[in-house]
Design a protein around this nucleic acid. Structure first.
Lengths: 328, 328
DNA sequence: GTGAAAGCGCTAACAT
DNA sequence: ATGTTAGCGCTTTCAC
């Protein structure tokens, strides 16, 4: 015992009770008499006792770690999500084991297997989709899996989905209202399920409205990609509207339009984004965008984590149009 | 055994060896013959064996979890740091147990104690300063503590510090070079050690240069605070320069100057920030700022984590001026 | 309500 | 090099 951590046995000795009494005092809903309980608590406080979660977990064959895997943690959207989620988990007495999938992107399987080693209670996937075999293992081992904004249709995972189609539809309607005729649809080369859904719904709606669409889909989902899209597309002066599937793209696009291509927004170009990240509200942009509620997204994840049953819980988080100043 | 995890014993049986043989094959630098090793690996693969880190940790009295505690995870600066750090840790075979101090701010002690319960190998504090008693416990238990941008002077913790004074000095020099006479010094009401150091060094330098300083120090460290500062301060037309101790503040300040107070930047107002967050480079801002290298910051943290000795390792990460377009 | 004892899956002496 | 054994700190029957 090089390290000086106090054990339940130490506490038991000091309190003059058995070690099981100690265990019971720290176990929710175990039967201990008030007097024993008091003695134990006192001794524990004096000694600075803390349960060893490793031993606890070993015993129950599960920790109260929640595995969180995601990439792109520095992006405004993901970081906001992570911020809220980590707070919510802590409040629920759960801990957040964060695995950055930056290197793994395509294959988050090893990350999830690592989480198994820790006997994670549940796993939240912020971005990326795990292979089927991994999902099977989760189910087999009773590890609840919560996927955010993925496509997957299985009955044994929880899905939290933004209402992408509705959002894209809202954007389309607004652009039509602004009387746009020729519209840039800006997406990234990564084509995440969410982006695909947004683009599809938008295209659909525009088709029926009889507007023309110019599609751009290159590079990572970043400010720079949006900027590049703007520079490339806006040479065509007849483009009078744009829907960017992500605010980050929209912000870059906007800067290209104004700083590089001499466009007036919203006078001769209307732009709509998606997500409502904090920067969208900054005075230099005041981007009109489709907001997804960060807090209800987090709430949904937590609800999925807590739900007892193993069945699918498909939760869709609502969107709303936030009007600012980039649409006529 | 409701849950179907495979144990070392299962593997041992299948491979026809003892369970210690299994343990050894999965332990770095243990002596196993190639043939046994092969058999074990084969059996393990077939069975889908994964070591139980909980049991492993219980045995060694330490996990390979690195506790990361911080607040404000959604801010560009912190999220970038977290992104890099979580990647670096994963590469080193370490896991990141993330504790959001949003609720705890003042008192991160309970968070660190929680980390003790998990037998975290080391603790990285992204923001906030733990009380002395907690630091004692870390030392006593051999848990290395790495503090970022804090003030603390103790011999038993690792400190990673940005070269704030040098950075502030660089900013001051640049503003003097731009011939500014009356300068706004914008900081937040939270007055973190880093902010205090920057403000102090800046004031110092300006005093010797004979320039006037108008101090602002209110609200949280955010875009909005910077914006408010700009609106409040720039009514005074004689102010011709500004140093904001954080890019987020600078961006808000900049927007207030241009959008609200009718200032031309850099023509009649020079602005410098600190940090070089991604948004500082966006075309709407092109903020001249003092950059701290995110990657060397991360490298320093990892180095501190890995160093064998318990002694202080004060590492200062260098800064550099990045000239963009907000200073004359 | 309480204590004794078994066992969670693993690693590390200790023998062989 | 390999197997045997003894814990790591905890929870949970099982008697009382």
């Amino acid at each position: 015992m090089a390290r000086g951590f106090v054990t339940a046995e130490d506490v038991a000795k000091r309190a003059g009770v058995s070690r099981s009494a100690v265990s019971r005092t720290f176990t929710e809903g175990a039967s201990v008499s008030p007097s024993v309980r008091r003695k134990v608590l006192k001794a524990a406080r004096e000694l600075g006792y803390r349960v060893n979660r490793l031993a606890q977990g070993l015993n129950n064959d599960r920790s109260n770690l929640i595995g969180v895997v995601g990439a792109n943690l520095a992006s405004p959207f993901i970081s906001k999500q992570l911020d809220l989620l980590s707070i919510a988990l802590l409040r629920k007495g759960l801990q957040c084991l964060l695995l950055n999938a930056a290197d793994a992107r395509k294959d988050i399987a090893p990350l999830i297997e690592l989480l198994f080693e820790f006997r994670a209670r549940a796993i939240v996937v912020l971005s990326g989709e795990p292979p089927a075999t991994i999902i099977d293992q989760c189910t087999a081992n009773g590890v609840r899996l919560v996927l955010i904004n993925q496509m997957l249709e299985r009955t044994d995972t929880s899905l939290v989905l933004t209402d992408d189609s509705r959002g894209a539809d809202l954007a389309a309607q607004r652009l039509i209202l602004a009387n746009c005729k020729r519209i840039a649809l800006v997406t990234s080369g990564s084509n995440t399920p969410a982006q695909v859904r947004r683009a599809a719904a938008f295209t659909q709606r525009m088709k029926t409205a009889g507007a023309e669409i110019v599609l751009w889909s290159e590079g990572p989902t970043s400010y720079e990609s949006g900027y590049r899209a703007g520079c490339a597309l806006l040479g065509d002066r007849s483009i009078d509207g744009a829907f960017c599937v992500t605010d980050l793209l929209a912000l870059g696009f906007l800067d290209a339009a104004r700083k590089e291509m001499g466009r007036q927004v919203p006078e001769d170009l209307s732009v709509i984004g998606f997500d409502d990240i904090p920067q969208a509200g900054w005075k230099s942009y005041e981007l009109t965008t489709v907001a997804q509620s960060f807090s209800s997204l987090t709430d949904s994840v937590v609800a999925a984590l807590e739900s007892a049953d193993q069945e699918t819980r498909l939760q869709v988080v609502p969107v709303s149009m936030v009007e600012r100043k980039t649409v006529r």
